[in-house]
Design a protein around this nucleic acid. Structure first.
Length: 580
DNA sequence: ACACGAGCATC
DNA sequence: GTCGGAT
DNA sequence: ATCCGACGATGCTCGTGT
């Protein structure tokens, strides 16, 4: 199939709003293309050239693309930059600059071109990638280029992601969504959308039925829904198990004999980063053929207290592993098991899986099993939640009893209850708006996509940045806030502002907005509280709570002193212990 | 007719 | 959105 | 300098369930 045919379908999909229609159009593509092409299309829609668990990335982002487009179109980079700004999209920007009529490449040719780009590595690889992409652009028509450049950015912007592909496969073959469930089941177990697409378009459900959980092949992790109180949870799922929620990273561990694989939540292969956990998987399990999951947390080896997320996350690295596994060890708190002795146990109920997990894991300093209580009373969930938060954890997760492990789903089998969902327990901060950035995608039309927020340093009489905020406003409010801010534009950084971050537009500090955040972090980028150690503070997961407070002036913003206090308070809470 | 979840996109 | 790590 | 992936919230639209 020609790439231009796929592009035509993409264009049609982009121009409809009905999901049913999008699915029908993509279904048609799957009907008309070969099975092999279906595989390639699936990967391209995922913004990849391989399944997630294969470490093959493009290594091409916006900056390299800017260069490649400029080269191919023989224009200055600034021309591309302004086109991107105007359209809020790299694809549309490239499309208007390209001038080439040929549409002769096949899907396979385009895919293999992108595959080559991904495979380029080593010295001067960036230049080589730019060169390759530039050549591809030169061989394509404007609208082909529109989608080509969006692929490595994983911003196809069609309104089509994995779930729509699953529907479209079914619609393409049988005319309705009746096969979706089984296709999805297969995808959730092998995590390879390309493989599933190829098998299904070629031979239908039959080969998919033979797909099963296999040690060494990551399973798409189950996800949790969110609610904000124990009562809501009980109303939803009744009596349930409640477990602590740790703020680390989620790992899926596979063991077959002496061989161990460790995958991240997004199926990245992280085997090798956590030797202490791999060792525990080899020596502390009563079963040598298993898949199980847990949350990895850093802990202080002397006090056994869990460490903050920022410390845990610093273990995500390839070098100097041995030193860090001693100085900054991790403990895996296990919470589920998916496969035992080659048997798929994801269909078992929660209680049975937990029973198995307890049998398998022999706890030590590197591995343990999450605590669990069972209750059908909302207030009990709330008090367990309060206990966990008191001891420094993120919250709790409630699990429907007797529910299977729902791979890949965000259903209501698991429900998280987090500290930050409660306004009383999270940090609301009054911030002054000192600038903004142009938006991308639909926010391009509004000319705004995020604001730069600052707090008041009363000692220095300066405003210090603490976060970019790009969520919380409704569409209407975005338009209104832009209008408001434009009345006070400043050509340069206002004198009373101390910022090392440069927004697209500076704004005189006038408007104060309320910002909610999960927590405060140390920041090398923001200036709030930046002292001799060159480290300031930032907000984790900031969101605005509404339009500016007209009754507040910048000096009424939260002060840096208050921020410091909040940061202290947050980190002196009695930390949970990593009991051995 | 309306509420709610699914899916997607923005940051 | 923030951050840390790899290249 | 740039890319990548670890952690996420939030708002909007459509389709479906009640």
């Amino acid at each position: 199939m020609k790439f231009s045919e796929l592009v035509e379908a993409f264009e049609r999909i982009e121009n409809v709003s009905s999901r049913t229609e999008m699915t029908a159009i993509l279904g048609q593509v799957f009907q008309q293309c070969s099975s092999y092409e279906a595989r390639l299309i699936a990967y391209l829609i995922q913004g990849r050239v391989s399944p997630a668990f294969v470490a093959l990335e493009f290594g091409v982002g916006e900056k390299l693309l800017l260069e490649a487009i400029a080269q191919a179109c023989d224009v200055d980079k600034s021309v591309v930059e302004s086109a991107v700004h105007n359209h809020g999209d790299f694809g549309l920007a490239a499309e208007v600059l390209v001038d080439n009529a040929s549409e002769c490449l096949t899907i396979a040719q385009v895919f293999s071109g992108l595959l080559q780009v991904a495979r380029i590595s080593g010295d001067d690889s960036q230049q080589a990638k730019i060169q390759s992409i530039s050549e591809m652009i030169s061989a394509m028509s404007p609208r082909e280029v529109r989608y080509l450049v969006r692929i490595p950015l994983d911003r196809l912007r069609l309104g089509v992601r994995d779930p729509t592909v699953l529907d479209a496969l079914s619609v393409g073959r049988v005319g309705n969504k009746s096969d979706r469930k089984q296709i999805e089941r297969a995808y959730n177990l092998v995590s390879d959308l390309g493989l599933v697409s190829e098998l299904y378009t070629r031979d239908g459900l039959e080969p998919l039925c033979e797909i099963n959980v296999e040690v060494g092949n990551p399973v798409r992790p189950a996800q949790a829904a969110r609610l904000s109180s124990g009562d809501e949870i009980v109303a939803k799922i009744g009596e349930c198990a409640v477990e602590p929620k740790f703020d680390g990273f989620r790992l899926q561990v596979h063991r077959n004999g002496h061989q161990v694989y460790i995958y991240s939540r997004n199926l990245e292969d992280m085997t090798g980063m956590f030797p202490e956990i791999a060792e525990a998987a080899r020596t502390r399990l009563s079963c040598d053929n298993v898949i199980f999951e847990g949350e990895a947390m850093a802990y202080d080896p002397d006090t056994l207290e869990f460490r903050p997320f920022q410390v845990t996350v610093s273990r995500r690295r390839k070098h100097d592993i041995d030193r860090l596994s001693t100085d900054n060890p991790l403990k895996l708190i296990c919470f589920d098991v998916l496969c035992v002795n080659g048997e798929d146990v994801t269909t078992y109920g929660y209680r049975e899986r937990r029973e198995k997990l307890l049998q398998i894991v022999q706890p030590n300093e590197s591995i343990g099993v999450a605590e669990s209580i069972v209750t059908g009373i909302g207030s009990k969930i709330d008090s367990f939640f309060a206990e966990e938060v008191e001891s420094g954890l993120e919250g709790v997760i409630a699990k429907k009893l007797d529910a299977p492990y729902q791979a890949g789903k965000r259903g209501f089998n698991w429900i998280k209850l987090k500290r930050s969902y409660s306004v009383e327990l999270s940090d609301t901060i009054d911030c002054t708006v000192i600038g903004y950035w142009y938006g991308r995608g639909k926010r391009a039309q509004w000319g705004i996509g995020a604001i730069l927020a600052a707090v008041w340093d009363s000692n220095e009489g300066m405003l210090k940045t603490i976060a970019r905020v790009g969520t919380g406003f409704s569409d209407e409010e975005w338009v209104a806030i832009r209008h408001l801010l434009d009345k006070n534009r400043s050509e340069t950084c206002p004198p009373e502002v101390d910022s090392s971050i440069i927004p697209d537009v500076w704004v005189h500090p006038i408007h104060v907005v309320e910002v909610l955040a999960d927590e405060l972090t140390k920041s090398p980028n923001h200036t709030a509280g930046k002292g001799n150690d060159n480290s300031g503070h930032a907000l984790r997961f900031p969101r605005v709570l509404g339009m500016p407070r007209m009754d507040k002036s910048p000096q009424d913003s939260t002060t840096v002193d208050e921020i410091e206090k909040m940061f202290q308070a947050q980190n002196t809470g009695s930390a949970a212990e990593a009991q051995a």
